[in-house]
Computed example of a mutant assay.
Amino acid sequence: MKKVGIIGGAGFIGSHVTRIFLEEGFKVRVSTTDLSNESKYQHLKKLPNSLNLEIVQLDVRNQDELQEFLKGCSIVIHGGTPFQLAVKDPQSELFDPTVRGTETFLSMIQNATGIEKVVFIASVAARNTNFPLPAGNKASGETFSESDTPFYGEESHPYAQAKFLAQRAVEKFVENHPDLKFEITTVSPVMVVGKSLSGREDSTSTGIQFLFKNKIAPDAFFQMFYDHDIEFALVDVEDVAEAIFQAATTNRLHGKDYLLSSETFPVSAIHSMLNGQEANSDGKIVYTNSLAKRELGISFKPAKDSLKEYSE
């Protein structure tokens, strides 16, 4: 049995990734930042084939812990950077774990043995820090694809900036190491929606769905979404997990980055669908998904189905 290490494998996206690998017969090692807090990962122990599951504590900035985590893994999924919008200290809460953590991880996998594939779970923000607004060089509704030049805004949210800089570090590493013995592939999902496997309400993704369903604005940042009926590109969490699995188990994808997106809707339509009503507008494809469809074989679920699953 091959072993996969999933950094962040108990989170909103990570839990679905863990489930797929367990179902497909892999041994799975999942990281958690605090092993004493079982509420963060106890739901994973209820998954099929959980006897093949190992949960260990890991700080991605700690080289010794990271070296131990990588031992015996043929596949490594890195999804352990924070998705956090309310921050007091962007440097310590976002930039250090996201950018410096990614750089530490890259330096460690270079010398690890037995690794065949590494998959980074990035974000649409790694390609456009203005998300959900258009990239600075794009008009509203204009499509954005993997071939477009990534956009970095100095006034963008620190979370988006951190994800952008981390992905540039990955790309620079790939460019500077042409003779790696393993492949590196990245997936960049848009706003991820759907049902959590943990049942917890403390993830940012489920929290945003809760706010949109109930039209709650905890701050001026969210109020802006309602005031201007901002459009969001959506993707189902199960589709993201399937794309990660395919990227991890498919050869000759080295250096590629896949946008993962279904339809784009304004917040008013998302609010309606989360409450079991018809959308007040038609969805459209803004962030293209043709590359992921063609090379990863993903059939993206309609956004209304994903929002219905969360609502129920």
Rank of each mutant, 00 (worst) to 15 (best):
S262L: 09
K301S: 10
E23M: 08
S156C: 12
Q277L: 10
Q246A: 13
F69G: 02
H177V: 11
A135E: 08
K213R: 15
L85P: 07
K117S: 13
D59K: 08
P158Y: 11
N128K: 04
E312R: 15
K3R: 15
G25K: 04
K163I: 02
E142P: 12
T129I: 11
T149N: 12
A233Y: 03
L94K: 07
D64P: 00
S262P: 05
G14W: 07
E312K: 15
V267G: 00
V30F: 04
T33L: 15
A86T: 12
G8V: 07
F151I: 09
K195V: 03
R127V: 08
N289A: 08
H16E: 07
A247P: 00
I208S: 01
R19K: 15
Q67T: 15
E309Y: 14
Y287D: 11
Q161I: 05
L274C: 05
V240F: 09
I13A: 03
E103C: 08
S145L: 08
K304Y: 13
D64C: 00
I7P: 14
F164P: 14
Q91L: 14
V17A: 11
F265N: 05
T98H: 01
F69N: 02
I13D: 06
L291N: 03
F26S: 03
T129W: 12
T18P: 03
Q84M: 13
L44K: 09
P90A: 13
Q209C: 06
